[in-house]
């Protein structure tokens, strides 16, 4: 798929420039994730005409509109269902879902686990900013414990999903997580996820700086971006004898990869077998 002679990545080739500047807040991590996605698409030499971006509702859902491709802004929590239909009907399209933590894990949680289980060749990019940014910062399934949201005025008391473990448990063929600070790695992860034949679930640790960050006093955008690494990397801590530093135990990188049969392929195989009979 890689073409060595292709031109350097130029993001303006992949966006709908007339819609810019985009609607996202200053410092919103979704923009960085979007760049990584487009960069990966460029590096994979995917034809824009054959690229379908399906997104849900929320800040993440709006990202798709800025991409110069076949873009589908669907309903809350359901982009995976649209994508399933689209991909099955049009296997020639590269179908990428952009969703958020609330979109994907709360209202769309059922669709996520079944999409993972089926292992249809779709890439699901979940931008996790730990909140419902667009509706004003309510608690989401990934909101860190004790953090404040407009619906947890005393701090979040609900346990948190590990979306990647969930996806892996549900059977996704490819599972990975990355932070926006590590843009080249994020790009590489997305690239691998798209290339993987089967369902790829990619969690991007993004930042809601204006709503969630403000509410929890997490600092300005640069600081939130910086925190991703130390807060989320389990291995950023060497074995230091005089230990104090214990970052959160959340892994990044490719977390799971399997060669389970891809859905459409398995379907066709089964049909062929039946027709032969």
């Amino acid at each position: 798929m890689l073409n060595k002679t292709k031109a350097a990545f130029e993001i303006r080739d992949y966006i709908r420039e007339d819609l810019f500047p985009h609607f996202m807040c200053p410092g919103c991590g979704h923009g960085i994730a979007m760049r990584a996605l487009l960069w990966a698409i460029h590096d994979l030499n995917i034809d824009k005409d054959k690229l379908a971006i399906v997104s849900g509702i929320g800040c993440s859902g709006r990202v798709g509109a800025y991409i110069d491709a076949n873009t589908f802004h669907t309903t809350h929590g359901r982009p995976l269902t649209f994508a399933t239909g689209l991909k099955l009907a049009r296997p020639d399209l590269q179908v990428i879902v952009i969703t958020g933590d609330g979109d994907c894990l709360a209202i769309g949680g059922n669709h996520l686990i079944h999409a993972c289980r089926r292992n249809l060749d779709i890439t699901c990019l979940m931008l996790n900013n730990e909140t419902y940014g667009m509706t004003g910062g309510q608690v989401s399934p990934t909101t860190t414990r004790d953090r404040y949201t407009t619906t947890t005025p005393e701090g979040n008391y609900e346990p948190v999903f590990d979306a990647c473990e969930l996806a892996q448990g549900a059977g996704a063929g490819f599972v990975g997580r990355e932070i926006t600070l590590q843009t080249p790695s994020l790009k590489s992860l997305i690239q691998q996820g798209i290339a993987h034949p089967g369902f790829s679930f990619l969690e991007v640790i993004s930042d809601c700086t204006e709503v969630y960050g403000r509410k929890n006093d997490l600092g300005e955008s640069p600081q939130m971006v910086l925190s991703q690494k130390s807060e989320f990397r389990s291995d950023s801590y060497g074995m230091i004898a005089d230990e104090v530093f214990q970052p959160r135990n959340v892994k990044t990188g490719v977390l799971h990869k399997s060669d389970r049969p891809e859905y459409a392929e398995a379907y066709q195989q089964r049909i062929t077998d039946r027709v032969k009979k």
């Binding site: 350097a8 130029e10 993001i11 303006r12 966006i15 810019f20 500047p21 985009h22 996202m24 200053p26 410092g27 919103c28 991590g29 979704h30 923009g31 960085i32 760049r35 990584a36 926006t180 600070l181 843009t183 080249p184 955008s221 971006v225």
Partner: peptide
């Protein structure tokens, strides 16, 4: 360039 969420920065080499 990588970290600009708004795509406001582009780094170009002279040959580009």
């Amino acid at each position: 360039e990588w970290l600009c969420p708004d795509f406001a920065i582009a780094v170009r080499t002279p040959d580009q």
